[in-house]
């Protein structure tokens, strides 16, 4: 619903733009920019947008949303996928959609509402013949251009709750720090379980996806968390925010902590598990998850900190996400240690 809502907004804006500017011709996505070697210097070279500053995608670039999104300092995130003509995404159960070579996944980070909205950065994941490549693009203040920021940047931002922060645009390697499994760059977000069935059906209808995967759309809607099942919400939150590193083959594999949705071993999830290399990140606590006692759980302690060296995730967050802390705390509080449910 939300996905198609966005489409409508985009279409309406597009119609307005067309009226306002008769010159408008939808650009064609540059398959060369996506697939050839090298790092395009500007976002424009990809041709993903008709109006990049308004984030109106061109034909073939499809907006999507996630049931439970990654927290990124409260940024609004505008997500798009592109699949080259004549190819289609293959389903792979509830997990990651299998994108053909030539695909791109685009995510723009913005703060502010309406006319006040400022685009900060757009991150692209490009599926080239030799694997995925992640690149960050930084928007200028005039919002006329986003340029490659290989080394990342820091930008002063006021968050939706009025906090002044130094927002971090990740460098290329930091992109990989999260987007990596067994040393290879991979997408994280577009897993079937975290995408709406409706959007997936639309993608099938448009010929972009071979079939709606089994196990699609099972993660809860984070926006509806007031009514949702606590365990399900907490597990979804940990999966989306933590498990890209905390899983076998991920960046934090050596911790032995595995926070993936599909993990059902209590110890691997952190229940009664002592830390390995947490250092002061342990906060004086002896175990990752103390059933019934969130305040004694390292997991909550690290989520509830904004201090580098303590805060988790290590990248992509400079303020605390109170909603995430609340849901995960509630989950641990309700645990008696003997059960784990989704």
């Amino acid at each position: 619903m939300r996905g198609s809502g966005l489409l409508l907004v985009a279409a309406a804006a597009l119609a307005g733009a067309v009226v306002a500017e008769a010159r408008l011709v939808a650009p064609t996505v540059s398959d060369a920019a996506i697939q050839q070697d090298g790092y395009p210097r500007t976002l424009e070279e990809f041709g993903f947008f008709i109006h990049a500053d308004a984030q109106i995608p061109t034909l073939g670039v499809v907006p999507y949303e996630l049931n439970t999104p990654l927290f990124s300092d409260g940024a609004d995130k505008l997500r798009f996928v592109y699949v080259p003509d004549g190819t289609a995404i293959e389903p792979d159960g509830e997990g990651l959609l299998q994108f053909p070579v030539g695909s791109a996944i685009i995510k723009t980070f913005a703060f502010g509402e309406g006319d006040e909205r400022q685009l900060i950065e757009t991150r692209v994941l490009l599926h080239r013949a030799d694997g995925w490549l992640a690149l960050p693009y930084r928007w200028n203040e005039e919002q006329t251009e986003a340029r490659l920021a290989l080394a990342g940047a820091r930008v002063p931002i006021t968050t939706p709750v009025g906090e002044e922060i130094s927002y971090r645009i990740p460098n290329k390697n930091q992109c990989k720090a999260c987007h990596s499994k067994d040393g290879e760059v991979i997408p994280i977000g577009p897993k079937a379980r975290n995408l709406s069935a409706e959007w997936l059906s639309d993608m099938v209808g448009a010929g972009h996806l071979a079939a709606v995967p089994q196990g699609a759309d099972i993660l809860p809607d984070w926006d509806e968390r007031a009514e949702g099942n606590t365990a399900s919400l907490a597990r979804a939150y940990l999966d989306v925010n933590c498990a890209h590193c905390h899983q076998p083959g991920g960046g934090a594999s050596n911790s032995g902590l595995d926070l993936r949705w599909e993990q059902d071993d209590l110890y691997a999830l952190g229940v009664w598990k002592p830390p390995v290399a947490a250092g002061r990140g342990a906060g004086g606590h002896a175990i990752s998850i103390a059933p019934g006692d969130p305040d004694a759980s390292i997991l909550v302690y690290r989520m509830n900190s904004a201090e580098p060296g303590i805060a988790m995730p290590e990248l992509g967050r400079s303020i605390i996400d109170p909603d995430g802390v609340e849901v995960v705390s509630r989950w641990i509080d309700q645990m008696d240690g003997a059960e784990i449910t989704q």
């Binding site: 971090r168 390697n173 580098p308």
Partner: peptide
């Protein structure tokens, strides 16, 4: 003055 990341230098 480090403001982010879990280490000074990460080699992968």
């Amino acid at each position: 003055q480090q403001a982010g990341s879990g280490e000074g230098l990460l080699v992968t």
